[in-house]
Every structure is written in structure tokens, then in C-alpha cells.
């Protein structure tokens, strides 16, 4: 009897919680095509489309929050928002602090961007990367000298100004920049394979949300929605268009 009452009480409580629960999605808003702020001031990109679809399928009300990359994990664990959906690779170091859902974008090669005329030996010179990324960790362990920047934008500026010999970042971020530079910037040929796939970061204690999001990711993988989104936002990376 006691258990029955308890069970009923929990059911009532969790129903109330589910009704009042708004999931706050934390993102950086500076890393196209994953997530960026468009000219209307809206957060858009691959992860915006995906996140909205996941929330719809999981039956959650979602709002979007922009947060600096530097403090994106501390603000998640202290509860300022409920997920990190910001092109974050699943790594063992991060997994010690937060949990990840299953990946929604497979691991893909990173690339080096440099000014035209640079040869591949630049990857052992001074290499710029965004702070606290898998790429910055990779450069730190290599023989190259690492210079770190708070935003992806500043890493590109560093290469243009000659402060760094090359930038290491995701191929999908660098490719359009090289293509539209009018020959000023090029991608070097080494394409190191760093880190795991990209997943959504969630507080370790928030297993309920993690389960819901995992189920929703299963569902977008199963009916091809995720493949279509990957093809829409990463048109050049044809190898991942039928990843799931």
C-alpha cells in the first residue's frame, strides 16, 4: 500500500515536472555550419535544425541559450542550461566531467588552413587552435607550437596576420573559408583524424534527459532525417551523408 501511494505520488510529481520542464539548449553560436548567429540574430545551423527536431520528437519544450565556449561546461554543470549542443566531440576527458548522448555526427578528419604558398611542413610550426578543443589538445601533443584563441574567428585572423603558420579545426568549418578567400587561403594536405563523433553534452545526474535525447537520436537516425540534415549542412563531406 505504502509503495502504491509512493508510486502514485512520484507519477503525479513527475507528470507535473514534465509539464513545467523547459529544456535549455546551450550552444556557442560562432561555429558555422554547426551553430552560428545569422543576420536576424537567431541561432541557426546544423545543430539548431537537429536540436529542434530532437526536442519535437522527445516531446520537450526547448529554448536556445548562447554561451562562451570557454565556460560552456562549467555553466552546464551548475545548471544554467541543460544540454551542450555545440559541435563538441566526445572525448574521455570531457566524459569525466559530463555525460554525452550517442553521437549525431560521425568523427570526421580535421584540416589545416594556411595562407597560399605554405607547404605541409607548416603543421610542425606555429599552429593556432581554439582553446579547449580536441584540436588544441592534438597540437599540444605534437611537435608544433600551439597558440590558442577563445573563438574560432580569431584563429583565422591569426593565420592571416602571420601570427600563426596554420589553423587546425574541423574540415567543415575551414573548407568554406578557404573556398571563399579568393586563393588567399588554402587547406594543407594532412587531414588528421582526431577525437570521436560529435554528441550532446548532458549533466551526469540528468539520466532522464539523456535517455530521452538518445531515443530521439535513434529515431532521427532510423528514418533518414539525420542523414538529410548532414547532407544539407555539410554538402562537401559526401562520405558522411549516409552515415546512419
Amino acid at each position: 500500500m505504502k509503495k502504491l501511494i509512493l508510486g502514485a505520488a512520484i507519477a503525479v510529481m513527475s507528470a507535473g515536472v514534465a509539464f513545467a520542464d523547459t529544456v535549455r539548449m546551450g550552444t556557442e553560436g560562432a561555429y558555422p555550419p554547426y551553430n552560428f548567429v545569422d543576420d536576424n540574430g537567431e541561432i541557426v545551423g546544423f545543430e539548431r535544425d537537429l536540436g529542434d527536431e530532437l526536442c519535437k520528437r522527445a516531446g520537450l519544450e526547448c529554448t536556445w541559450v548562447k554561451n562562451d565556449w570557454d565556460s560552456i561546461i562549467p555553466n552546464l554543470v551548475s545548471g544554467n542550461y541543460d544540454t551542450i549542443i555545440a559541435g563538441m566531440s566526445i572525448t574521455a576527458e570531457r566524459d569525466e566531467v559530463i555525460d554525452f548522448t550517442q553521437e549525431y555526427k560521425p568523427a570526421d578528419p580535421s584540416a589545416y588552413l594556411a595562407v597560399a604558398g605554405t607547404d605541409d611542413s607548416a603543421i610542425d610550426g606555429i599552429v593556432a587552435a581554439q582553446v579547449n578543443t580536441v584540436q588544441s589538445g592534438f597540437v599540444a601533443k605534437s611537435s608544433a607550437t600551439l597558440v590558442e584563441f577563445a573563438t574560432p574567428d580569431e584563429t583565422i585572423a591569426a593565420v592571416k596576420s602571420g601570427e600563426a603558420d596554420a589553423v587546425l579545426a574541423d574540415y567543415s568549418y575551414l573548407a568554406p573559408i578557404a573556398a571563399e578567400s579568393g586563393g588567399e587561403l588554402i587547406l594543407l594536405s594532412p587531414r588528421p583524424f582526431i577525437g570521436g563523433g560529435v554528441g550532446m553534452g548532458i549533466r551526469e545526474s540528468d539520466t532522464e534527459l539523456k535517455d530521452k535525447m538518445n531515443a530521439a537520436i535513434d529515431s532521427v537516425k532510423a528514418d533518414g532525417t539525420l542523414n538529410a540534415l548532414l547532407a544539407k549542412w555539410f554538402p562537401e563531406e559526401t562520405s558522411i551523408h549516409s552515415a546512419y
Binding site: 513545467a20 520542464d21 529544456v23 541559450v65 551548475s78 545548471g79 551526469e204
Partner: peptide
């Protein structure tokens, strides 16, 4: 305090999760 996480009940959130931006 659960490990790294700071978890309070939904009603204690400041401001509430459902509050406007």
C-alpha cells in the same frame, strides 16, 4: 552536489527553466 553537478529541484531554479529569455 552530485560529483561535478549542482542539482536543485525544478521549482528552485532561479529563474525558472520555463521563464522567458
Amino acid at each position: 552536489y552530485q560529483g561535478n553537478d549542482f542539482v536543485v529541484c525544478t521549482a528552485a531554479k532561479m529563474p525558472l527553466g520555463e521563464a522567458e529569455q
